[in-house]
Design a protein around this nucleic acid. Structure first.
Lengths: 344, 344
DNA sequence: GTGAAAGCGCTAACAT
DNA sequence: ATGTTAGCGCTTTCAC
């Protein structure tokens, strides 16, 4: 077991003081008048023996852990894991590591996560917040800790945030279905308080009402048995024969909804139009391929990390920014009746 | 900005020593003869003011960070993100947090990740190793750090590992296709040194050869342009008209391969059978639904964490264990000609 | 230009 | 039964 060496060992080997070593390690050598020769000597020795400073000691001393806490609803969700990857990519270049936690969109779980992250002295937080977490986040901010929220708004709280225009995304999706001749569109959404879902619902409602129609909304409880969700959607479809299009508020709902539609033997596109909020790699492979509202994941990540780095490096007070990004509609075949367009 | 309190503050407020507080905090109160009354007093005060010990200081002192380093090829891959979630679930109950890193299946990236994780003093490693990383992992183990590898074997190295029987999984998949009347099966796999891929290839070869056939293997470079992968597969299909079944070695390849098949206008199941290694939530929704070899994710995670906890709590030397889990074939419609079975 | 030393918050051996 | 104290490895002020 090769003994881990400390700055003290290095200093002793080199017959200099810990201070000198520390200075060159932190790039403060020149400004503190350490000779070039000395710097080279230290650097090359460190390189040779593969010394790397102990982050815990550094952290204890400086109060900085060089780690960021990321909290999302569920890290196994493709949307969030793709984002996690992107964050990793960007933050690694800045010398940060990420520790993650899944909130399950549950306030208490999130509170506990925040506590744990605090104990770990994370330098900043990236959070897709559940409802009811305002107070805790406010406390964080008041303590001067950088917090960036994304994906879900936290109204009533002045905090850096990066959101997507859920309202317009849903509006456009609905409008697109209407434009393609579908008249009775049902929106299948989650029975939950997630603010971004409410925005999507609002966009749908607004659009339908403007067109003189009557909104129809089916709410499904999240992560109850898959079979239950499928059965509920199937039931709705059977009881509402006039329904000729479905707008799924999330990928997860589409997964079950598409099965329900199959069970009802309704031909997608011709008999029933389909649009899903959030894209999936697989959608283009369906027959017919599935139209989706996609979120600008790259942009979300760069905006979030930019805000975060700004806060981490901030010298003076800066006012929180709220960034809203547009969604992108990817029109495929599930929302275009065959008589109007070729099928893939 | 509410000042963070330390154990010293607590001790002063309570008029006791830091030791006493520390003992009750660490459940060593009784064994060190701290009175029940005292324990309750400390506990309730701590609860009241919401004190929580600073992990960095604890870590520096004890040499334990209570964090685990997880390295996988790509955290945004569904397989790995699902696993990340499960690890989180289990390790949280044990008081550990996870920091993650994506290796891109690249040796140098992984080496650097290991260095960074070491600096962060992670208490243990969970690694899906890239090729050529044996030496570094060996060094870790010799330093007494718990390392569990999974997903990919590291031959020549005696280390705790949890793997899936890739050979048998591929063998069974091939056998299943043969049994359903497909005669010319091509395996589409990655042009890479990943050991688990070689095992899958071996399973396929063995089965085809036993049946007196001639193996046909198409290798695709990972993560080159999607279009290139699609074109390559399409090309193969066009040049080999006799091919009547495809066995995709991973989900990622299936994503492109299914598009190639669609482009060639080959009817899945009837004209061309399809089986994919690794399942996806979406496969049951395809028409026809896609047959897949699924990995026992739950089992992998519990085995890995069990091994890890064993190491973390180990008193005496224990010999490394190699655990191999069976895969599960989920027969859907893409591998069963219609004349033999009903379509969904 | 370089070094000594204090101290970040905690644990645990040792004293009392 | 409770308190004193010496570090863990590092940064940084201040003294030489």
């Amino acid at each position: 077991m090769k003994k881990k060496l400390s700055i003290k060992d290095i200093a002793e080997q080199l017959n200099v003081s810990k201070t000198t070593v520390s200075f060159v390690l932190n790039g403060k050598a020149s400004e503190n008048g350490v000779s070039q020769a000395m710097q080279r000597k230290v650097l090359s020795y460190i390189e040779k023996v593969g010394y790397r400073p102990n982050k815990m000691a550094q952290g204890l001393r400086t109060g900085k852990s060089k780690t960021i806490g990321m909290m999302v609803e569920d890290i196994s969700d493709t949307f969030f894991s793709t984002i996690a990857r992107k964050f990793e990519e960007i933050l690694t270049t800045k010398g940060y590591k990420i520790i993650y936690g899944s909130t399950e969109n549950n306030t208490d779980v999130t509170k506990e996560l925040i506590r744990v992250f605090r104990n770990h002295q994370v330098d900043g937080y990236i959070i897709a917040p559940p409802p009811g977490i305002e107070e805790d986040i406010k406390a964080l901010i008041e303590d001067g800790v950088p917090v960036i929220i994304f994906d879900r708004p936290l109204t009533e709280l002045d905090v850096d945030s990066v959101l997507v225009d859920n309202y317009r995304g849903a509006y456009k999706a609905t409008q697109h279905l209407l434009a393609n001749g579908y008249k009775n569109i049902v929106m299948v959404t989650l029975l939950s308080e997630q603010t971004q879902m409410r925005e999507r619902e609002r966009g749908y409602r607004q659009c339908v009402e403007e067109a003189g129609g009557k909104p129809a909304i089916l709410k499904i409880r999240y992560h109850e048995k898959k079979e239950k969700a499928i059965a509920d959607i199937e039931q709705y479809l059977k009881n509402n024969r006039k329904t000729d299009a479905v707008f799924f508020a999330t990928n997860y709902l589409a997964e079950n909804g598409l099965e329900a539609i199959a069970n009802c033997k309704l031909a997608i596109a011709d008999r029933i139009g389909v649009v899903v909020f959030d894209d999936s790699n697989w959608f283009r492979l369906f027959k017919p391929s599935i139209t989706a509202i996609s979120q600008p994941i790259e942009a979300i990540c760069t905006e979030v990390t930019n805000l975060l780095m700004e806060r981490l490096e901030q010298k003076k007070e800066i006012a929180p920014k709220a960034i809203v990004l547009p969604t992108n509609m990817i029109i495929r075949n599930s929302s275009v009746p065959v008589k109007k367009a070729g099928r893939t």
